[in-house]
C-alpha cells in the first residue's frame, strides 16, 4: 500500500516534468521524482520496531540480524541524494543563465534552436 503511494508521487513528478511550461516547476517535478525513489528505497529497508544497524558489544548477533533495519538502502539513498544535489545545482545554474539570456522562465519562449 505504502509502496503505491511512492509510485503515485513518482507519477506526480513525471506529470510536472512533462506538462508544465515553467522551468522552476520542471525542476521541482524532477526533484519529486528523485525523492519518491529515495523514499521507496528507504521503505524497502524499513521494518517495524527496527533498530539502527550499528552493532556494539552488548548486542548478540541474533538480535542484530532479526531487529536491525537493512543498512544498504540507506547507503544507496545517501549516494543518490548526493547525485541529486549535483544535478540540482547544475540545473539551477543553467536555469539562471537561461533567465539571463531570455528574461523568462517559460520554455515555450525559448526557441532559438531550430525546430
Amino acid at each position: 500500500m505504502i509502496y503505491t503511494l511512492c509510485f503515485l508521487l513518482f507519477t506526480i513528478g513525471l506529470y510536472g516534468v512533462t506538462c508544465k511550461k515553467n522551468i522552476v516547476k520542471i525542476i521541482l517535478g524532477l526533484l519529486i521524482m528523485e525523492y519518491s525513489i529515495n523514499l521507496f528505497l528507504i521503505l524497502l529497508g524499513w521494518r517495524k520496531n527496527g533498530i539502527a544497524p550499528i552493532i556494539d558489544q552488548s548486542m548478540s548477533h541474533e538480535v542484530f540480524v532479526f531487529q536491525a533495519v537493512d543498512p544498504l538502502p540507506q547507503a544507496l539513498v545517501l549516494t543518490s541524494i548526493v547525485i541529486g544535489l549535483g544535478v540540482l545545482s547544475l540545473m539551477v545554474a543553467i536555469s539562471i543563465r537561461l533567465y539571463q539570456r531570455y528574461g523568462t522562465f517559460d520554455i515555450t519562449e525559448m526557441n532559438k534552436l531550430k525546430r
Binding site: 544535478v87 543553467i94 537561461l98 531570455y102 525559448m110
Partner: peptide
C-alpha cells in the same frame, strides 16, 4: 550562449528522467 544552454537543459531534463 542561449542555444547551448537551451540544448543543455533539454538534454538534462530528458536524461534525468
Amino acid at each position: 550562449q542561449s542555444r547551448e544552454l537551451e540544448a543543455s537543459f533539454k538534454y538534462l531534463v530528458m536524461s534525468t528522467v
